[in-house]
Design a protein around this nucleic acid. Sequence first.
DNA 1: ATACTATTTGGTAGTTTAGCCAAATACTTT
DNA 2: AAAGTATTTGGCTAAACTACCAAATAGTAT
Lengths: 106, 106
Amino acid sequence: MTPKQQALFEARANIAKALAHPTRLFIVDMLSKGERCVCELREAVGADVSTVSKHLSVLKKAGILEDDKRGLQVYYRLRCSCVLSFFNCLEGVLRENAKKQLALME
Amino acid sequence: MTPKQQALFEARANIAKALAHPTRLFIVDMLSKGERCVCELREAVGADVSTVSKHLSVLKKAGILEDDKRGLQVYYRLRCSCVLSFFNCLEGVLRENAKKQLALME
DNA sequence: ATACTATTTGGTAGTTTAGCCAAATACTTT
DNA sequence: AAAGTATTTGGCTAAACTACCAAATAGTAT
């Protein structure tokens, strides 16, 4: 792995890492339907606000989300819809896994 | 988040987690070009064999890779090509990030 | 200014992860 | 069966991550 490759794959891994948490995937899924403020997300997630806020900042730092403040609320949204192809990938693997499970049972 | 959703997003996150490491992304990228044995991967990655082996087992456990032994070597390959849409996603975000960087410089 | 609401930040304890070495396992060749 | 090669597993330490609480910050309303 050349240093150049190293850097490329590290950049990619940073984004993948940001997505690699159930709560953060849930948030991304919610935001794929439209922007939400922190309090709405907090409610849906059901964890401490500070926890949710930190998850949001992880996603933002990775460039997956963007936010803007309107009055007291901060609204978050997806920065590019390409994130949905990510879910395709995950679903694809899960489907394969399920298929294999079935096959093993016979 | 209902328990059902919880379970779904955990399953997805497990796959995402398996992909969230530069070396593992590199391996997946290599395997997208065809199967490889551990020693070839080890050579390309340039880390201890045991390290590479552990990365492979993480990917396999997540259902992303499958392997089979032929003689002394163990060959690994992608289990479904959908993983490539994952790279699309990562590239998309990286592109957006780069665009923003450019915009900020003006 | 004060009180109130929404969000972020700092600190901490517990858990998970990564990478190396050494040892075990599996297969092949002599 | 003994020696050699390929791979996996166990053990260990250092680093990274998560969730909560408490405290700080930012904006709004009285």
